[in-house]
């Protein structure tokens, strides 16, 4: 019996400024294989579909269980994690592309720093450092902890930014994930103490105002985070904050 092959079409780019090109690969199939496994096979034996020796395809990955977000790429047109993309469930030829909303570094690996900059901008953390022991913080009600936990599943993978039509080279939009993170940290009993700082960051240029309600983010999020609910909720909170600030202080 002839060996079963996997057909891959990969969008490659040699350096951050060079022109992308497509290269095809045909690699042997193994049961239970995922896209990372296929890329590892190319790394082991970097021969393209024409039988020529080529450079191995560059990609990023880490946890291999869809919790770190590092291996996000566009697979058959949809941004998702390569580790949880099983070959058996993909239509062939499998098209792999980098998430080009981000600066491409090489092949499938991208620079997601804009997401970390966005988290810094909206202060997506809880400041607890002090010069002395402040004691335990207020308790969080269990019912709230349950939904807040869902928001905390965000792994900064970048899929929502890739899916969003308003995140692109012409816009400064920080993206859906950062808005949802503000909701998470503003809900936390200790985080609440600095909520105005995060609200004001959301009200800056490229903030929540840039959301155009295409709602692709909530469809694309691999962790099922209710991003559009977070956005609408933060729309309400930022509006209330703006009105309060204008009239009362």
């Amino acid at each position: 019996m002839a060996e079963k092959l996997i057909h891959l079409i990969i969008t490659r780019q040699d350096s951050p400024d060079s022109t992308p090109y497509k290269e095809e690969f045909k690699i042997p199939y193994r049961p239970g294989m995922n896209v990372i496994g296929a890329l590892m096979e190319i790394q082991r034996n970097p021969i393209n579909a024409q039988g020529q020796k080529t450079s191995p395809v560059n990609w990023e990955s880490n946890c291999l269980e869809e919790v770190c977000g590092a291996c996000s790429m566009v697979i058959n047109g949809k941004p998702r994690q390569a580790c949880s993309a099983l070959i058996d469930k993909l239509e062939q030829p499998i098209r792999l592309e980098p998430m080009s909303t981000f600066p491409v570094q090489r092949d499938l690996s991208i620079d997601r720093s804009r997401m970390f900059d966005a988290l810094k901008r909206v202060k997506a953390w809880i400041p607890i450092d002090g010069t002395h022991d402040l004691g335990p913080g207020p308790r969080m009600p269990e019912v709230e902890r349950q939904w807040a936990y869902e928001l905390s599943k965000c792994m900064t993978c970048g899929v929502c930014l890739e899916a969003c039509p308003n995140v692109n080279a012409k816009s400064e939009f920080i993206g859906p994930f950062a808005i949802s993170q503000v909701r998470l940290f503003n809900q936390h009993p200790t985080g609440q103490m600095n909520k105005h700082e995060r609200l004001e960051a959301l009200m800056g240029d490229g903030g929540i105002g840039d959301c155009g309600n295409s709602q692709n983010c909530v469809q694309a999020c691999p962790k099922g985070i209710p991003l559009t609910t977070s956005i609408a909720h933060m729309n309400k909170e930022t509006t209330k904050h703006a009105v309060k600030k204008f009239f009362f202080s």
Binding site: G77, K78, A163, P165, N166, N168, K170, S171, G212, N213, S214, Q215, N216, Q219, A220
Partner: peptide, 19 residues
């Protein structure tokens, strides 16, 4: 309107079409 990068081809959801 001219700031958006339309992508209904890859994301053919109802709300994206409305967008």
């Amino acid at each position: 309107a001219f700031q958006a990068k339309h992508n209904v081809g890859n994301f053919g959801y109802f709300r994206n079409h409305m967008f």
